[in-house]
Simulated scan of single mutants.
Amino acid sequence: MAKDTQPKMTNEPTGALGAVRIVLVNTTHPGNIGGVARAMKNMGLSDLRLVNPQGYPSAEATARASGAHDLLARARVHDDLDTALAGCCRVLGTSARQRTLRWPELTPRAAAADLLQAASSGPVALLFGRERTGLTNEELDRCQALVTIPTHPDYSSLNLAAAVQVLTYELRLAALEAGQGDAAPVESPGGGEVGAPHEELERFYAHLEETLQVLDFLDPDNPRHLMRRLRRLFARAHPSVNEVNILRGILTHAARGPVGRGNPERD
């Protein structure tokens, strides 16, 4: 076996970067997974999550990893996106285009700063979609903002591994600058309170939708974009665990109506 001849890095920003999760959704070419693993290891990231990858594991993925075999070996495969995002207090999705209902949009540099700031509260995720079609609107609902790489308009298509390389480079640069004291101090959102993890937010959104139907505010047969707009609203607020619990308590009492208020048997 050939010796590792790569130079050893000093002052590794492993704490911040260790909290960043790269999530690939339904990747169709296993070689791209290997390329992503290599890009991640180049920049000091190690948490790779795969949601229903096609044709994986494969020799092609291993060959493309080119020295990042340990990262591939640790990669976790999930049956659904929510499981892959479990525990994450901030999720950003990558997209080459905006949708009918616009998401907040970040440049790669702004996204790196955003994720590293949120990482002070817990794991964060950067989400990448299918090579041909990207992320669906339902998958983007799990994200608080979109990241778009400003490519040349005449040829904007980026290989999946190349897109991951661009964004992980920005993450590494931001982490190194923060470690050298050149960046603004990293503070957790919500005044130091821990941001609500992905699964708690999804339970809140399900509770909110159910309550709005009970109150006849939301017609399930004609929902339009109401829930998507409400997701955007609460994403901007970065609610903490305690704040989500308060909101769910309000929803529970609102659904009971006037008759149920103050009734100890129902409380």
Rank of each mutant, 00 (worst) to 15 (best):
residue 164 V to G: 05
residue 168 T to A: 06
residue 172 R to A: 07
residue 180 Q to C: 06
residue 165 Q to L: 12
residue 146 L to G: 13
residue 134 G to Y: 09
residue 137 N to S: 15
residue 107 T to F: 07
residue 165 Q to Y: 09
residue 120 S to R: 12
residue 150 P to F: 11
residue 162 A to R: 00
residue 184 A to F: 05
residue 97 R to E: 01
residue 159 N to L: 09
residue 104 P to G: 05
residue 130 R to G: 01
residue 183 A to I: 00
residue 125 A to C: 14
residue 139 E to Q: 15
residue 98 Q to N: 13
residue 158 L to A: 02
residue 102 R to Y: 11
residue 183 A to R: 10
residue 173 L to F: 01
residue 116 L to Q: 08
residue 125 A to K: 09
residue 121 S to L: 12
residue 152 H to E: 10
residue 190 G to T: 08
residue 122 G to W: 02
residue 103 W to C: 13
residue 175 A to V: 01
residue 152 H to S: 07
residue 167 L to D: 06
residue 181 G to M: 06
residue 151 T to W: 02
residue 103 W to G: 00
residue 179 G to E: 11
residue 191 G to E: 08
residue 162 A to S: 12
residue 118 A to H: 11
residue 182 D to M: 04
residue 116 L to E: 07
residue 126 L to M: 15
residue 119 A to P: 13
residue 115 L to I: 05
residue 163 A to F: 08
residue 99 R to A: 07
residue 187 E to C: 11
residue 108 P to L: 13
residue 146 L to C: 09
residue 192 G to V: 14
residue 128 F to K: 00
residue 106 L to R: 10
residue 112 A to T: 05
residue 129 G to V: 03
residue 171 L to G: 04
residue 151 T to M: 03
residue 101 L to W: 11
residue 99 R to Y: 10
residue 181 G to R: 03
residue 138 E to K: 01
residue 183 A to T: 12
residue 103 W to S: 08
residue 178 A to Q: 06
residue 107 T to M: 00
residue 167 L to Y: 05
residue 143 C to A: 14
residue 170 E to S: 02
residue 136 T to V: 11
residue 121 S to I: 08
residue 156 S to P: 03
residue 136 T to K: 12
residue 144 Q to R: 13
residue 177 E to C: 02
residue 155 Y to L: 04
residue 190 G to F: 08
residue 159 N to D: 11
residue 164 V to M: 09
residue 183 A to L: 12
residue 106 L to T: 11
residue 183 A to M: 10
residue 119 A to F: 06
residue 122 G to H: 14
residue 154 D to L: 00
residue 169 Y to D: 02
residue 114 D to G: 07
residue 161 A to K: 04
residue 160 L to V: 06
residue 168 T to H: 08
residue 101 L to D: 10
residue 140 L to G: 07
residue 111 A to W: 10
residue 95 S to I: 11
residue 132 R to A: 08
residue 119 A to T: 07
residue 166 V to N: 05
residue 138 E to A: 14
residue 187 E to G: 07
residue 127 L to Q: 10
residue 116 L to P: 02
residue 114 D to R: 07
residue 141 D to L: 15
residue 191 G to K: 12
residue 121 S to G: 15
residue 134 G to E: 15
residue 174 A to Y: 01
residue 178 A to P: 05
residue 135 L to P: 07
residue 174 A to C: 04
residue 104 P to M: 10
residue 162 A to N: 08
residue 135 L to N: 13
residue 160 L to W: 05
residue 166 V to D: 06
residue 176 L to I: 06
residue 117 Q to E: 14
residue 127 L to R: 13
residue 103 W to I: 04
residue 108 P to G: 14
residue 158 L to G: 03
residue 95 S to E: 07
residue 122 G to M: 03
